[in-house]
Amino acid sequence: MQTIIYEKPKTLTDTPTHFCPGCGHGIVLRLIAEIIDTWGIRSKTIGLAPVGCAVLAYNYLDIDMCEAAHGRPPAVATGIKRVHPDHVVFTYQGDGDLAAIGTAEIIHAANRGENITFIFVNNAVYGMTSGQMAPTTMLGQKTATTPSGRDVINYGNPIRICELLAVLDGSSYLERVSLSSPENIRKTKKALEKGFKTQIEKRGFSLIEILSPCPIYWRMDANESMKYIDEDMTRTFPLGVVKDWEHKN
């Protein structure tokens, strides 16, 4: 007799993803699909796809989805949530989308305390456009537009979104997690669950920042990029809960 211990979530479509080898997006999308399956919320979940590597997220998730202009998912999600206040609405955004061109939208969605879950995949680089600097690119990190490494004088410092949003009264739950190991992936799933729970219980704005590998534009192999997250990225972007409505300071 066969026992199924691991299978493709129903909420993932059969479409093969376009992501590069070693990319973290596939993992995050799978985690979202697992939660939707387990919680049985497929028919009341609406997702927002960004512009960037994850633009085709709607090809992989078998739920109602909307594309938004670059950086605008928080505003578009706000418009959707006001029509369907009891649905689960989430955005899926990269670092360019959420932390550069969409900075105003994410800050004001947080400030309004929009009861929406924001999934922020931070890989510190613009993948889709061939590896340019992201707002979260680390000091010293080489990218297509910081060929000698990011320096403070010319490019400023990497933006820590969770800490930035934490000072706003409207944000309820903010956590930074990573995909660097099976253990961290499990923690990421827990954080995503907490984000959706925050919304379903109408506790307001939640954002999960996920440190995710981009071996191609980090010029590394998959193992090295996992090590890079643990040893380098987390120094700039420390993991952990930044704000939690359950444990108010």
Binding site: I46, C66, A68, A69, R72, A75, V76, A77, T78, G79, I80, K81, R82, V83, H84, E105
Partner: peptide, 11 residues
């Protein structure tokens, strides 16, 4: 963009 969202949701 908010109009975009509400229109997409049928409002």
């Amino acid at each position: 963009s908010m109009v975009h969202g509400s229109a997409a949701a049928g409002g």
